[in-house]
């Protein structure tokens, strides 16, 4: 609870950002800013602390319990810090059929973590998540905000090695099906309708 008294308010030195977020919504819909405010805090701090919950509640004229209630409903807000590289393996059916179980085992063995854990350095955390909408390019590994699609063992090795050097590589942005077939060959100027 010391934190509650000493933490500098997150939005104190970001008035433009705060106004931009509040300004997205109509006056009668001020509460809509709740999720974006939680996002901003989490993006910067990798979790949303009790102090930040109280601050957001204050901004929106809500109680901390109301904010916590919304936050806990959704699976991508964290009440405790995750690693600098938050590895999220999609475990749902299409990814399972493409080897997500083995991918998870491999990450567990390599990192020495089980899903839900963060390493002592605070570098890696591992989580099994539900469908990420990358079914046709399965299996998918999401690191922080980035999708690595159709990842194989060699891809995972290269990715982990890069992250140990504090580099998050650009993803390949795999496309499949029509995107593959029509993509590169698409005509430059479709007929103006």
């Amino acid at each position: 609870m010391i934190e509650l008294q000493t933490a500098r308010p997150f939005f104190e030195d970001k008035p433009e950002l705060l106004q931009e977020i509040l300004g997205r919504y109509p006056d009668y819909g001020r509460r809509s800013a709740l999720m974006p405010l939680l996002w901003e805090v989490q993006r910067a701090e990798r979790y949303v602390s009790e102090a930040r919950i109280a601050e957001i509640a204050d901004i929106l004229d809500l109680t901390a319990t109301e904010v916590r209630g919304v936050m806990s409903f959704y699976s991508t807000y964290h009440g405790e810090p995750v690693g600098r590289y938050h590895l999220q393996v999609c475990a749902t059916l299409s990814c399972k059929l493409a080897g997500a179980d083995q991918l998870t085992d491999y990450l567990e063995d390599t990192l020495g973590l089980v899903p839900g854990e963060t390493d002592a350095e605070g570098r890696f955390s591992l989580q099994k998540v539900e469908c990420l909408g990358s079914c046709t390019t399965a299996p998918v590994l999401q690191v922080n905000d980035t999708y690595y699609e159709r990842v194989g063992r060699a891809d995972v090795d290269a990715l982990l090695a890069a992250m140990k050097e504090d580099v998050l590589p650009e993803p390949a942005r795999v496309r499949a099906g029509d995107n593959e077939r029509y993509g590169p060959a698409a005509p430059a100027g479709e007929e103006d309708a």
Binding site: L93, S94, L97, A98, C135, T136, T137, A138, R175, A176, G177, D178, N179, E180
Partner: peptide
């Protein structure tokens, strides 16, 4: 059609 699972060429097809 978004085809996934045990197929040779998974992908999205209009």
């Amino acid at each position: 059609a978004q085809v996934s699972g045990a197929v040779a060429r998974p992908g999205v097809f209009e």
